[in-house]
Design a protein around this nucleic acid. Structure first.
Lengths: 210, 210
DNA sequence: AGTGCATTGTAACTATTGTTACTGTAGCCG
DNA sequence: CGGCTACAGTAACAATAGTTACAATGCACT
């Protein structure tokens, strides 16, 4: 674990903090599709991502859901921090988008380090800033874009996160992420295929030119 | 200024910090309607609200705009902090919703205090958490609610913020805040009036029962 | 090979929201 | 007073998104 820590966080944390993380953190390998946090969960530790990607979703009580953003290597979940510190229930759902490796840090430590390490403070603050900006971008997307543009952006983002032109997903899954219906997605995907931007197959979509 | 500081922030900040704020902060009275921050501005100080309310808007380059949330007494603007710390341009626009009194703190101090005062650290972190949750609520609203429900929520929020059943605004202004067209708002307001929930007048709306 | 299920394609229709266009009216100002 | 402007009411229509219903196809499993 120490080597992976060095590689991914060596440039931002000092030696001593890295050693502490190594001591109290729990290394985990998460297979794609695993649910990490459910809405209403009490969260007692925060993740530091080593590799892979995590999808953060918002759900409401009616079964509506919506993709908020992805977390990647070097990211942590500001929402989770907010929950930990505030002793609140989680407002979001987290699902591994790909096979993911991460280190879990217990809440107590993360508060302790806030006083102890300048670099940790900066990291936490910067994470909040990043997340606020991601949330802004999400708001832009749903407020200002039409469904066809949102779908395009979704496909682009997904291809980038997975570093793969071939997206393994179903129309229904996309519909859930964008909070619309399967039929609408099928319709728009078909239009994109006719424009030559993608190729549709069962259970996967090949990105040609977005 | 010290008295107002005591009243509004006395219970969260220690004496010494209050004195420092009193020294370096600039007290300002802002009349309703004043534009505080425009998108693209470089921000070099953060506000601590004493009284009144500030409306935070998101704009894009096409002239689209959308109300994000209101700031009230005891609040500060996490977006602004994010800008200050990151030396970035503002992503949002801030306009005084009512006559507002606030204290402006220069960036350098706010960073210095992060190391020096435990209470300041907590305040900053808590502000980020509050703002993240406001953003989540905003996302819920635009993603899951229809325009008539969004309008209802808007009227409720506005009445609460202004502590007044009589909202001084125009249909066009509401349309801007909700990012839709004036005609749509007029239509929906008329429906609410028929349901007996509001009374429409020129330049103001009387809230009866929401 | 045949059954069953998940996935996709498509048509037809409805609902919601956005647009255009025109009218009326209140209030301000010369 | 007359004219200007901002605000509000409304109809008619267009565009977008959501819904229902059903057919077709691919794949896993027996």
């Amino acid at each position: 674990m120490l080597i992976e820590l060095q590689e991914n966080y060596g440039h931002i944390f000092e030696e001593e903090l890295l050693r502490e993380i190594n001591q109290v953190g729990t290394y985990k390998e998460i297979p794609a599709g695993t649910k990490l946090i459910e809405i209403g969960d009490y969260v007692r530790s925060m993740p530091l991502l080593i590799s892979g990607a995590i999808k953060i979703m918002r759900d409401d009580t009616e079964g509506d859901e919506l993709l908020l953003y992805f977390l990647e290597r070097g990211d942590t979940c500001a929402m989770t921090m907010a929950c930990c510190m505030g002793q609140k229930k989680s407002e979001i759902r987290a699902v591994a988008e790909k096979d993911t490796r991460l280190i879990m840090i217990p809440v107590q430590k993360m508060e302790e380090w806030m006083t102890k390490y300048q670099t940790w403070r900066s990291f936490v603050l910067e994470s909040y800033q990043l997340r606020l900006n991601e949330m802004l971008e999400t708001i832009d997307t749903i407020a200002f874009l039409k469904m066809d543009e949102r779908l395009l952006k979704y496909l682009r983002d997904k291809a980038k996160i997975n570093q793969d032109d071939c997206l393994e997903t179903t129309h229904q899954q996309i519909a859930y992420d964008l909070h619309t219906s399967r039929v609408v997605i099928s319709r728009l995907l078909k239009a994109l295929e006719k424009e030559g931007k993608i190729q549709l197959h069962r259970n996967h979509i090949k990105v040609i030119d977005l």
